[in-house]
Simulated assay, not measured.
Amino acid sequence: MGLSKGQKKRLYGNNIEAKTTIAPPAETAHKARTQSVRHDSVEANPESGKSFMFAGVAFVIAVLLMLYYYLWVLPEMSERAGTTISELKFWFDQQHALAVNQGLGRDMLVQYQYIHRSSGLIFPLIFAGAWVAMISASQFAKTVSRLMMAVPVLWALVFILGNFVLDAALANPATGPVGVAALLVAVRWVLFIACWAQLGWMAVRLVQGKIDAFSRGELKGQQPIR
Rank of each mutant, 00 (worst) to 15 (best):
S145T: 04
M77I: 03
M1I: 06
A181S: 10
K89N: 14
A213C: 04
Q7H: 08
V207R: 08
M202G: 01
W91A: 14
A29Y: 04
A203V: 03
L65Q: 03
R117G: 12
F52N: 08
E76D: 09
A55N: 02
Y114G: 15
F123V: 01
P124C: 02
R106Y: 13
G162L: 05
F59N: 08
W201I: 07
A130W: 03
L64Q: 06
V207L: 03
R80W: 14
S118Q: 07
W72S: 05
V178P: 05
T28R: 15
P177S: 11
V178M: 03
G179S: 10
V100Q: 04
C195R: 07
Q35C: 08
S51F: 05
Y112M: 14
W72P: 00
F159L: 06
W155K: 04
A181C: 05
S215Y: 02
S136Q: 12
D93K: 02
I61T: 08
G176V: 00
S136I: 05
L104G: 05
A197L: 13
L219K: 00
E87S: 11
S119N: 09
K9A: 15
P75W: 06
P75D: 06
A18S: 13
M202R: 02
H96R: 14
Q223T: 02
H39Y: 13
A26Q: 09
T21C: 09
P24M: 04
D40F: 09
N172S: 15
P75H: 12
A168W: 04
V42Q: 12
L147N: 04
M148W: 05
P173H: 07
D93G: 12
L157I: 11
